[in-house]
Simulated assay, not measured.
Amino acid sequence: MTTISLPTYFDRDTLSGFFNELEKHIDTDDVCLDCSTIRFSKPTAMLVAGSKIRSWVRSRHRRGLKTRKKGVDTYSSAHSYLKHIGFFDFVLMGAGNCVGEARGSSTYIPITRITKPELGEGENALEQWYEDIQSKVRGLARVISGKPETHQDNRMYNYALREIIRNVFEHSGCEECYVFGQRWFDGAVEIVVVDEGVGIGCTLRETLGDITDQEALKQAIKPGVSRTSQLSDAENTFDNSGFGLYVLTEVARSFGLYVLTEVARSFGWYALGSNSAKLIGYESNLEESTLNFNGTYFGFRLTRSPSDFSSLAKDIIKAGEQEANVDGIERKASAMSKLF
């Protein structure tokens, strides 16, 4: 029997080696996943690792390979936390709360499954589709912001969750995605959305041709870049303009802290990963690396919120439209991308 230990720390930069071990033993007949090694967990890394594990486990089950678990019942604060938020159910280990069972608290969202709403017919069908998504994220944004709906913090997280989730349902081919988020007592916030769809590279190749996954990610964070860029208004069913992800990466980048220590660098960043590629952005830095992941995730952490998110987002969109125009992209940000 081969044993694979989960990382001691589920953090942004600790997953590559673990993922490589999973892939190395994807075809090994008898493998045990040892969960007793976990001591600490951050939102983005936890949900991304969870998606990877469940994909790995499902692949092995389909082929009749023996997969064991160990250490799920380890007594520690980390294990209690992961059980409570639904992690072990999410990774198909059958322990703790089921996904959606935990109620969360005033400072965190447990692992939450969001399903794609139906797009109806009629003049207001698209507006209703957007509202269905908005209704799904409204309560999540209130928890993460810790503020009433009229507050700028709440508007920002409403915008962030809405834009990420609608991107999932417009492009990934998925009928569901998963969300997790936490707000700490010092005001720092981290949220992540994961889908298990076709990936950004697959969708952007429809418009940009034969590009790598890494090139696709770098294009995806530019203003006005979308698989719908060359579609007519009639064909662009969801009125996608390619500005939502651009706005979010610019906000995260602008409010990141640039400090040389590794600990401090864990604050103020965004992470975008899809299939074989990953980007981490903070201030003017963009780190590129490889990944082995089925789907797409977007996570970001802010140490503080902008004092006036609406004004900041408008400025970012204005600059983005000018940048897109220079690059030969005439499409403006959609009405939804401008709704703060």
Rank of each mutant, 00 (worst) to 15 (best):
P306W: 07
A49C: 09
L140I: 04
V192H: 10
I85H: 03
I211S: 09
R304W: 03
D132A: 15
V247I: 15
E283Q: 09
N275L: 02
T212D: 04
T303M: 12
E235F: 04
S80D: 14
T44Y: 02
I191E: 02
L82D: 10
H84A: 10
C35Q: 07
S145Y: 04
K70H: 14
S310H: 02
L47E: 00
S41V: 04
K70A: 15
S135I: 05
R227H: 13
P7N: 02
H84Q: 12
R155A: 13
Y178K: 11
V91E: 09
E206G: 02
F309H: 06
T44S: 05
G320F: 08
I221P: 05
P148T: 02
A216S: 15
E176Q: 07
R63H: 12
E287H: 11
M1K: 10
H61T: 13
D27W: 03
E176C: 01
Y270S: 00
E123D: 09
Q128C: 12
R183Q: 10
D195S: 08
D153R: 15
F300A: 00
M46L: 09
G122L: 04
L260G: 12
R68V: 10
P306F: 07
G268S: 01
Y75G: 00
G242T: 05
I316V: 14
I211M: 01
D73Y: 14
D308K: 09
V179L: 07
T115Y: 02
L47V: 02
M1G: 15
L15C: 08
H25R: 02
D132I: 02
A277L: 01
T207F: 00
G120R: 05
V99M: 01
R142T: 12
K218N: 13
L272M: 10
F18E: 03
L208M: 11
T67I: 14
K66I: 15
S172Q: 04
A160T: 02
V225K: 12
H84Y: 11
K222M: 13
G320H: 08
L260H: 04
F293M: 04
V189Q: 14
E321N: 06
R12Y: 13
S76I: 12
E127I: 07
E163I: 10
I53K: 06
G242Y: 05
I200P: 11
D11A: 14
E196R: 10
M93D: 02
L33V: 08
P43R: 04
S307Y: 09
T3Q: 08
H25K: 10
G71A: 06
R301Y: 07
G50D: 10
S266W: 01
S307G: 04
